[in-house]
Design a protein around this nucleic acid. Sequence first.
DNA 1: AATTCGTGGCG
DNA 2: TCGCCAAGAAT
Length: 348
Amino acid sequence: MTASGENVASLLLAWYDAHARDLPWRARPGDPAPDPYRVWLSEVMLQQTTVTAVKPYFAAFTRRWPTVEALAAAPEEEVMAAWAGLGYYSRARNLVKCAWAVAERGGFPETESELRGLPGLGDYTAAAVAAIAFGRRAVVVDANVERVVARLFAIAEPLPGGRKAIRAAADAITPQQRAGDFAQAMMDLGATICTARDPRCLLCPLSARCEARRSGEPARFPVKAPKKAKPQRTGTVWWIVHEERVWLVRRPGSGMLGGMRALPDDGWSAKGDGSGEPPVAGEWRDMGAVRHGFTHFDLDLRVMALSGVARPSDEGEWWPIGELDAAGLPTLFAKAARRAMATARGVR
DNA sequence: AATTCGTGGCG
DNA sequence: TCGCCAAGAAT
């Protein structure tokens, strides 16, 4: 395995030297070294999130908070609002906690194990930052690496069980030098050539050693366990207006959309439908509904409107409707707000 | 170990 | 339209 491992790494690094994607968080030729802050921030944003979705957020964050110290000094609610729309909001909560810890200790730790102890850094991200930002030899396994490795070695055990074998194989082909470039090369290969559907084997620098390609059906790998069906849920949000302002609340710090500003709702969740019971009595008007798909359930959300209430609940704030973009609403509530405003204007 | 966490794009 | 998928982590 060693000899073939070295071959795979050198073939891949040569391909990377010629074809690496130009991404905003990567060190440019002429840069002295990668900036650990930018590497960390990009890696957290990229967890389960596409490069296209991350780019504008990365630009906004680094412009507004150029260093980890600047981010650590920012009010948490401003960071949460800036994250709005990117999803998986526990990442934003952990991002803030991590920035505090790093600023406190005077910089990022450089070893994989120390990085692994920071909030929001799991096995993947700790390895990626150690390798990319600090040049450490680390085994970086994300969904791209899983796919490339499963195909290279035709690992047929279904995920998630097959992850142990995949990790061992990834370890075996990870070089001692340039582990960060190797990781990024694997991810670039997975993103542009060894794609999930219809891999472009004719362009692949590793095709000659790929057992999945030899099998004739490379797209069959990695094998995955069947997924559970998604429940369909229904719920209601309350669009309560008063003098060109709308009543917003903040969601609890944990759980779905935790810590984010939101429209008040009737308690819908992944587990069950909302009650449909309005928070205050009045002449509610049906503004229509929006559909939203979460990872583990689909939601049909009705939007009900009311005006003329002085103070709907103890906790909350009146937010100017004209400045709703700055409220930092998760996409679900932004959709509901658009629905309410469109209906109020008479648009269906 | 299995669940619970968003969102947008693509075939 | 719809299921799949994306630089996973926390519990």
